[in-house]
Design a binder for these strands. Structure first.
Lengths: 188, 188
DNA sequence: TTCAAAACTAAGCAATTGCTTAGTAATAAT
DNA sequence: ATTATTACTAAGCAATTGCTTAGTTTTGAA
């Protein structure tokens, strides 16, 4: 009855996600998205509603990639704290760009949009952060000697360190980043 | 011979700086600057050339404030590592906004503009980061027992931690931030 | 083969962006 | 008082923003 789409939504969203990741939300225009996704504006709007819709789908795509390449590996690993350290190094690989890294898409976004960010976008970011933290807590809890207060404090410590890693890897060299990761885990 | 300016450049730049700090570079429009600075676009352009010029002057203003409220205090203090910890807490106070903080203006900027940032702006950011690091190294060196390799590694660790603090304080609550600072200094 | 439904192209919309310019008002040495 | 110099107001510039719409093409059930 009706004409078929000439693109696969998941495929073009992955392209959009990568552009947002490299470029940020505000400075990525609909024209740039058009080019990168390889589809017309009409198609974009009919598939995803508006620019924010494209971004929300991009976040979903990012979460999926992060799950596959970061969270699943963390869960599978059995060597406690060392597994979290591996997670830090995996994140650096995950967010690698050219010479410098592109950070975490969601950390970048909260840093760019701040508290004026759209409610929908913000709640997705908060959900993601909660997820990451719970994965870290889960790993910390494999050490039965730690009381819950220690776990909470160490989880906060690691979460903020991870944020630092995300931003710092966008402007610092490899050596400084590795110094940082090693130092973070020296005392746990 | 000629008419007098009806504003003091340093005064209106401080207002511009605060707007950029709260709002970011790209999302701050010339119209918003006009309102905040209380001067006409013509005056803005005749005093500072263009939007980038206003921002570069805002960076100078930020550096001056940071020197007065952060670096000078750090230099004066004599209690080694503890002084750096004080610096971390002072930064939180320095960047306080409403419920959440507004981070470091320069960290925000590098995170927003990335490597595509204007050369002039980027070099100001790098210079600032170098300054901060040298202040930290200077404080670390007061402990004569530390060899230069330890100092370098600890300086990198503290620099990235500071970046993490800047970003994390924009989205995390006070408790998590304080947990982080305490943990950072537990092992030094 | 017909035809309604959906997807395409491309032109165009109002609003906003950074920036400029034409015209007027204030200043102080002459 | 005149005059050259600078600062002001406010209107307007082209370019870009996110988004829409008019018109055409493809599709497959009837």
């Amino acid at each position: 009855m009706a004409r078929k789409k000439e693109y696969i939504e998941e495929e073009v969203i992955e392209k959009a996600m990568n552009l947002f990741w490299r470029n940020g939300y505000e400075t990525t225009s609909v024209r740039m998205l058009e080019k990168e996704m390889g589809i017309n504006q009409f198609s974009m709007y009919s598939s995803f509603g508006n620019k924010q819709g494209v971004f929300l789908e991009s976040i979903k795509c990012y979460k999926k990639k992060a799950k596959e390449e970061l969270f699943d590996k963390l869960k599978q690993s059995t060597n406690g704290i060392e597994a979290i350290k591996e997670y830090f190094y995996n994140f650096i690989e995950f967010s690698k760009e050219t010479r410098l890294n592109k950070g975490c898409l969601l950390t970048n976004t909260v840093n760019e949009l701040g508290e004026y960010a759209d409610t929908l976008i913000m709640s997705e970011i908060v959900k993601f952060a909660t997820d990451v933290k719970s994965h870290i807590i889960e790993k910390l809890e494999t050490d039965k000697q730690k009381d819950s207060e220690t776990i909470s404090k160490q989880a906060n410590y690691l979460m903020v360190s991870l944020q630092g890693l995300s931003v710092a890897s966008k402007m610092f060299e490899k050596q400084q980043i590795e110094d940082f990761i090693e130092s973070v885990f020296e005392n746990l």
